[in-house]
Design a protein around this nucleic acid. Sequence first.
DNA 1: GTCTATACGGCGATAGAC
DNA 2: GTCTATCGCCGTATAGAC
Lengths: 238, 238
Amino acid sequence: MAKRQPGAFDTWELDAPQLQDRSAELWDHSYGPVARRLLTSATRCYASKGFQATTTRDISGGAGLSPAAMYVHFPSKEAILFEIARTAHVKALDDMRSPAQDDLVERIWHIVYRHVAWNARYHVAARVAQYELANLTPENYASIREIRRETNRVYRSIVADGVEDGVFVPIDIKRVVRGIIALAVDPVRWYRHSGTDSPEDLGEFYAGLALAMLTSTPPVPASRTEPSDPTQAGEPAR
Amino acid sequence: MAKRQPGAFDTWELDAPQLQDRSAELWDHSYGPVARRLLTSATRCYASKGFQATTTRDISGGAGLSPAAMYVHFPSKEAILFEIARTAHVKALDDMRSPAQDDLVERIWHIVYRHVAWNARYHVAARVAQYELANLTPENYASIREIRRETNRVYRSIVADGVEDGVFVPIDIKRVVRGIIALAVDPVRWYRHSGTDSPEDLGEFYAGLALAMLTSTPPVPASRTEPSDPTQAGEPAR
DNA sequence: GTCTATACGGCGATAGAC
DNA sequence: GTCTATCGCCGTATAGAC
C-alpha cells in the first residue's frame, strides 16, 4: 500500500500518527513521565481511531505498559480524554491571546494567525480536543465548554470593537466569529507536518481570509433566489 | 435538566435528534420502507452517539425491530453507515450544482448558498457523513472520497475561472476552496431547526463571506511577526 | 507501580422456529 | 421477514502477587 500523500486535499485517515507528532510537549509536568507517556499514547490512539474504538490495551501498549498499570495513573479512559481536551483547549487559548497590540486589524490578524498555527502544530492533540468531545461525561464536557466560550469571547470582543470603530464593516458578530473559528479549527482535520505548509504559513493565509471577511462588503448577486428544492427528483446512479 | 437552548453557540450534544429531523426524506426508494426506517434510525443514532457507541440494538429498536431483523436488510452496521454517507454526499453535491448561471459571482454565491442550506436542512445526516468517515472500510472510504473530490472540483473550477477573469483577486485556489468548504460544512456541527436561522438565511450569510474572501485584498498588518513560541512557560491553573 | 490473570458485561452477528 | 435465543468474542476494569 502506498503511503498517504503529503498535503492530501481532504482526509480523515491518520496513519502512523507518531510521525513528527508534538503532543508529548503539551502535558503539565505535575504529571510524572509515565502519566505523560500515557497521555501521548492516548492522544495518538484517539486521533487515529477515535475514542470509542481505542482500547485500554492500545493506550497502555503504546506507552509500554500493561493495561492494569494505566489505572494507577488515571481512573478511566474518559479521564485521559478529558485531560487531553482540557490541556489542548487551555494551551491554545493561552497561546492565541498572548500578544496585545492596540490596532484592531493587528489584533484580529494575530489571534487568527496564532490560533491556526497552534492547531496545525499540535494537530494530533487538537483533533482529539475538537472531535471527541461527545465522549466526555456531562460534567467534563461542561468544563471544556467554558474554555470554548472564553475563546469565543476573545474573538467577539475584538470584532465588536472593530465594528464599532468602523475599522470593520457592519456584520453579525456572532456569525462571523463562528465562521472565523471554523476556519481556524479546520486544519486539525487535514494538517500534516510532512506537507509543504508550515503552521505559520497557514496562519498567515487564514488570518488574511478572516480580515477579508471583516473588511469588505461583498457583491450581492442580483438573482436571489428561488429556494433550493430538497425533493428534487434526480437519483444518482447506484 | 433544562433543554438545550436554540442557537447554542457551540455544541456537540445532539439530544432528541428525532425533533424535526428530515433525514427520512433522503433515502433512495429502491430501498423498501423498512430499510428506510433503519437508515433513518441509524442516522439519528450515529449523529447523537457516534458510530462506535451505537449498537445494532439501538438501530433496530429505533426502527421498531429486533436486532436480527436488521441483517435481512443490511449486511452490517458499517454497510448502513456507508449508505448514509454515500446518500448525503451525492445528494448534497447534486443539489449544489443544479443552477448554472454565467456570471462567476452568481455561480459561487449560489453554490455556497445551496451547499450551506443543504447541510443545515439535513444537518443530522450531514453530520454523520462528515464526522463518521473514519469508521468506513478502506474501500467504502475511497468511494466517498471520490464524491468529495468531485465537490472540490466544482468549487475549484469556478474559483479558478474567476481568478483568471480577474473577477476574483489572485489567491491560492486550493487553499481558499478548502476554507470555503470548511465554512459550508461547519453548520452540521451546531445547526438546529429550533434556532432562529433558516437554512436559507445561513446560506446567504456564508455565501457573502465566501465572496468577501474571493473579492477583497485584506489589509496586511505591519508587524509580522515574531513566530509564536510553543514552549512558552505559563502553565494554566489546575 | 507494574505485572498476570480474570471477572463481568455487552457487543456484532447467526441459528432456527414460525 | 420477523422473532427469540444464543454464540463467541473482546471490552473496561479489578484482584492480588511481586
